[in-house]
Amino acid sequence: MSSDPDDDAPSWEGDAALDARRPAPHPSEQRATRPAPAPQGGDAAPSRDDQADVRDDESQGIGTATLVMLGILGGVYLLYTVGWVIGGVGMQAKAMFMLPAPLYLASMWIAALAPALWFVATLILTRGGRDWVRISALVVGAALLVPWPFVVAGGGGAL
């Protein structure tokens, strides 16, 4: 079945007013509904240039190397979240003389959620961009969000 509303019903006189109010289709929908180039010279198959043009118009998706890098960096961010929780719990007894317990716990959980939030925000904000921009933003986040309480104190005795 076709998803094009023009194929669902016959057209009638006066439909031009309705077409003027209809929103323009998304560019990806325009490419999908574009007719294939007509073969020249009878029943000959489309040339390689015509096939390459149609292939170039379609989105290529995510590459294998990018997918592997996203998986590796996603694992790093997951380990960072665990490191912030373990390091924060290990430092809790030492930090109680400086901060009240609710304030310390709130800041610890914000720090623990920061790697996950960075990862999700990077994926959302770089959705239409190039792969190297997305990977660069994730690498910068991995350098900035190192769980220092866990790294320096080895978990602060919480292990």
Rank of each mutant, 00 (worst) to 15 (best):
A38L: 11
A38D: 15
P35L: 01
A24P: 12
R48G: 08
D43Y: 01
D50G: 00
P46E: 00
T33Q: 12
A44F: 00
Q51N: 11
P25C: 12
D43V: 00
A36K: 03
D57V: 09
R31A: 14
G61T: 02
A36D: 04
A44K: 12
A32H: 09
G42S: 05
S59R: 06
P23E: 15
D56Q: 08
V54T: 08
D50V: 01
T33R: 15
D50S: 03
A52L: 05
A52C: 05
A24L: 13
Q60Y: 01
G41M: 01
D49L: 04
P23L: 10
G41A: 03
A45S: 02
E29G: 15
Q30Y: 12
Q40H: 11
R48W: 07
S28K: 15
D57A: 12
D50M: 03
P39I: 05
H26T: 13
G61V: 02
D57E: 13
P23S: 13
R34I: 08
A32W: 04
P46W: 00
R48D: 11
A36E: 07
A52M: 03
G42D: 07
A44T: 04
R22A: 11
P23M: 11
D49I: 07
A52S: 09
A45R: 03
P25S: 10
D43R: 08
D43P: 08
Q60G: 04
A52T: 06
S59E: 13
D50P: 02
P46F: 01
